[in-house]
Write a protein that binds this DNA or RNA. Structure first.
Length: 567
RNA sequence: UCUCCGGUCGUCCAAUGGCAGGACACAGGAUUUUGGUUCCUGGAAUCGGGGUUCGAAUCCCUGCCGGAGAACCA
C-alpha cells in the first residue's frame, strides 16, 4: 500500500485531490480518524467503474488507518432485490477489501429518518404537499422561471404532523401526498426547490417487508445515513455535485454529525459501455452469456475472464482521481493485467490451432522428456517434464509456405527451435486435395536436446509444440473487445450502440491441445500459454480431463504489429 | 436562454505563483531458448485573447469547447 507522499511501484504520483483533503483533515485535527463508505443500490452487479469507487473509499480508509462501511442504499423497494446483495459483497471481498462490522442498510435507519422528518416539520422546515405529481413538477418551474409555492405550503405544523403520521399509518394511496422540505422555490439549483423527502409506496420492501408504506428519497436518506454512521468523507460521482447544497442543508437542520460530500469523475473506458441499464440490456437480449460473461466489464465477468484483483487495484491507482470527464484507454487496464500475470503465472505450452508435424529422423516409438521451467526468472518455481515424440503439433500460424520479410518462424527449408525440446528443419509439406497444408515433415538435430544450439549456430525463431501422443484435447475461448470502436455511443444516423458490438468478440476453439501437465488443474487457475497469452481454467465449465480455458489477455505481439504495419 | 462543474502530451494523472513531470500508447535500440519480460533512447501538451506579477498551467476578466442540472430514481 502506498502511504501519503510515497510513490506507487510504477513511480506515478500517489496523490489526488481527495487524498489531499483527507490528509489535511487529519493533520489539522479536524478528524482523528476517517470513516468512508461505499453505498451501492442493490439493483445490479458491480462493474469496473464501481471498482474505482471501491478502491478509492476502501483504499483511503486503509491507507490512513480509518474504516469503510458497506451500506446498501435500499430506499426504492420497487427496483431493488436481495439477489444483488450477495454478489456485491462477494465482489468487494474478491477485490480485496473488508468493510467495517456488518454491512449496513439505509433501511436500518428508516425509524431515525422518520423522527428527523417530524423534527423538521415541527421546526416548520417541512410540509405535506397534496398536489398531484405533475402539478408539483409544473409549479417547480424551470431553469429560467422560478417556482410557485404549492397551495399546501403553509399548512400548520399540527396539520402537517397529523397528515405525515397518517401517511405512515397507511391511510392514503400511493401519490396522495408527499413530504417536502421547505427551503424555497427560487434557487437556480432545482434540487433546492422544496425537494421531496418522502413518497407513499405501498410496496413490499426486500428487508422491511410491509412495515413501511412511505419511503425516503435519496437526498433525504443519503446524507442522514452518512451522519448516523459518522462518515467523515462521503465520496460520490460528479452527478451528485448539484445535490451537495441539499446534502449540507439537511445536515444543518439536524442535531447530527456533519459529513462532507466530495465528488469525483466516474470511470469511462474505451471499447466499453458502463451503465447498468445497458449492461442489463446486453444480458437480457442474450448479446452476452450472462452477467459473468468474460467480455462484460462486471467484476464477476472479469473474475471469470481471469483478471487478478491485484491488477484491478493497480489499475485504479494508475488512473488517478479528478473531476474531469475522461475516458481511460482500455489498454491501460490490459497492461495492469499483463503486468500482474507476468509475475504470477506459471508458463505452460498449448497449441490453439494444431498443425501436424512428423519428425522423419526421430526413432519410431521414442519418447523424450525435456525439462521445462515454470517461469524464466523464478527458478524457485521449479519445472516439469514435457514429453515429445515423433509426431507433434505446432501452431498453424507458425508456419508459412512463403515466408514474408522478417519472418523467422517455420517455412520450407527453415530451421527453428521447439522451445525446451530441440531444433527442427522443415523438409516437406503435405497438402490435401484442396491444396491446404495438412502436415509438415521435419528433421531434428539430436545434438540439440533441450533446444540448445550445439555448434552455436543462430536459430532466431522459437516455436512451441505439444506431443501428439501426450497432448490433452481442450476447449479454448478467445475473447476480444466487446465493441468495435473506442466509443460505442458514437453512432451514425439510424445506428444504435448495439450495432457496434464486435462480432468476433468470442471465438471458441474446440480442437486445441494442451500439454499433459494441464490435465488436472483447478478451475480458476491462471497460466501463461507460452507465446500466446494468459489463460485461466473456466470456473464453470472446466473439468479434469476435459479442460476449458478462457483467454484473459494476449501477450504483447510485436510480430503482429510488424506485419500489420507492412500491410 | 439560466446555473454549476471542468478544459495540461494521442489517453489518464501530477506540478498547490518559481526548471511542465510520470504512466499507458507510439517509435527506435540492447538483452533474450516466449517476436514475452527487462533495460536504454526518442517524439509528444498547458483551449484562445487580455490583465495582475520579477515570474502564471496555477490568480483576475473575457471568449470558446465539453459535461451536468427541471424523476414521487439513485
Amino acid at each position: 500500500m502506498n502511504r501519503p507522499g510515497e510513490s506507487t511501484p510504477q513511480g506515478a504520483p500517489a496523490s489526488n485531490f481527495i487524498r489531499d483533503i483527507v490528509k489535511d483533515d487529519l493533520e489539522s485535527g479536524r478528524h482523528d480518524q476517517i470513516r468512508t463508505r461505499f453505498p451501492p443500490e442493490p439493483n445490479g452487479y458491480l462493474h469496473i467503474g464501481h471498482a474505482k469507487a471501491i478502491c478509492l473509499s476502501f483504499g483511503l480508509a486503509r491507507e490512513f488507518g480509518g474504516t469503510c462501511n458497506l451500506r446498501f442504499d435500499d430506499t426504492n423497494p420497487t427496483t431493488e432485490d436481495m439477489e444483488y446483495v450477495e454478489s456485491i459483497k462477494e465482489d468487494i471481498r474478491w477485490l480485496g477489501f473488508e468493510w467495517e462490522g456488518d454491512e449496513k442498510y439505509t433501511s436500518d435507519y428508516f425509524e431515525q429518518l422518520y423522527e428527523w422528518a417530524e423534527l423538521l416539520i415541527r421546526d416548520g422546515k417541512a410540509y405535506v404537499d397534496s398536489l398531484p405529481e405533475d402539478r408539483i413538477r409544473e409549479l417547480r418551474g424551470d431553469y429560467y422561471k422560478k417556482g410557485t409555492p404549492s397551495p399546501f405550503r403553509d399548512r400548520t405544523v399540527d396539520e402537517n404532523l397529523d397528515l405525515f403520521r397518517r401517511m405512515r399509518a397507511g391511510e392514503f394511496p400511493d401519490g396522495a401526498h408527499v413530504l417536502r422540505a421547505r427551503i424555497g422555490l427560487d434557487s437556480q439549483n432545482m434540487n433546492m426547490r422544496d425537494p421531496l423527502m418522502y413518497r407513499i409506496r405501498h410496496a413490499v420492501h426486500h428487508r422491511t417487508g410491509d412495515e413501511w408504506c412511505i419511503y425516503p428519497m435519496y437526498d433525504w436518506a443519503h446524507g442522514q445515513s452518512d451522519a448516523i454512521e459518522r462518515i467523515t468523507h462521503s465520496l460520490c460521482s460528479l452527478e451528485f455535485e448539484a445535490h451537495r447544497p441539499l446534502y449540507e442543508w439537511f445536515l444543518e437542520q439536524l442535531p447530527a454529525f456533519r459529513s462532507r460530500q466530495i465528488e469525483f469523475a466516474r470511470l469511462n473506458l474505451t471499447y466499453t459501455v458502463m451503465s447498468k441499464r445497458k449492461l442489463l440490456e446486453l444480458v437480457n437480449e442474450g448479446r452476452v452469456n450472462g452477467w459473468d460473461d468474460p467480455r462484460m466489464p462486471t467484476l464477476c465477468g472479469m473474475r471469470r475472464r481471469g483478471y487478478p484483483p491485484e491488477a484491478i487495484r493497480d489499475f485504479a491507482e494508475r488512473i488517478g482521481v479528478s473531476k474531469r470527464d475522461s475516458t481511460v484507454d482500455v489498454a491501460l487496464l490490459e497492461h495492469a493485467v499483463r503486468d500482474r500475470l507476468n509475475d504470477t503465472s506459471p508458463r505452460v505450452m498449448a497449441v490453439l490451432r494444431p498443425l501436424k508435424v512428423v519428425i522423419d529422423n526421430w526413432p519410431d516409438g521414442r519418447v523424450e522428456e525435456f525439462d521445462a521451467p515454470y517461469h524464466p526468472k523464478e527458478p524457485d518455481w521449479g519445472s516439469r517434464k514435457v514429453p515429445f515424440g515423433k509426431v507433434i503439433f505446432i501452431e498453424r500460424d507458425d508456419f508459412r509456405e512463403e515466408a514474408p520479410r522478417k519472418w523467422f518462424r517455420l517455412a520450407p527449408g527453415r530451421e527453428v527451435r521447439l522451445r525446451y525440446a530441440c531444433l527442427i528443419t522443415c523438409v516437406d509439406v503435405v497438402r490435401d486435395a484442396s491444396g491446404e497444408v495438412v502436415e509438415l515433415h521435419c528433421t531434428w538435430d539430436p545434438e540439440s536436446r533441450g533446444g540448445r544450439s550445439p555448434d552455436g549456430r543462430k536459430v532466431k525463431g522459437t516455436l512451441h509444440g505439444v506431443s501428439a501422443e501426450h497432448g490433452i484435447p481442450a476447449v479454448v475461448r478467445l475473447y476480444e473487445r466487446l465493441f468495435d470502436r473506442e466509443d460505442p455511443m458514437d453512432c451514425d444516423e439510424g445506428e444504435d450502440w448495439k450495432d457496434h458490438l464486435n462480432p468476433d468478440s468470442i471465438e471458441t476453439l474446440e480442437g486445441a491441445l494442451v500439454e499433459p501437465s494441464l490435465a488436472r488443474v483447478e478451475p480458476g487457475s491462471r497460466w501463461q500459454f507460452e507465446r500466446l497469452g494468459y489463460f485461466c481454467a473456466d470456473s464453470q465449465d472446466h473439468r479434469p480431463g476435459a479442460p476449458v480455458f478462457n483467454r484473459t489477455v494476449t501477450l504483447r505481439d510485436t510480430w503482429a504489429r510488424i506485419e500489420k504495419r507492412s500491410g
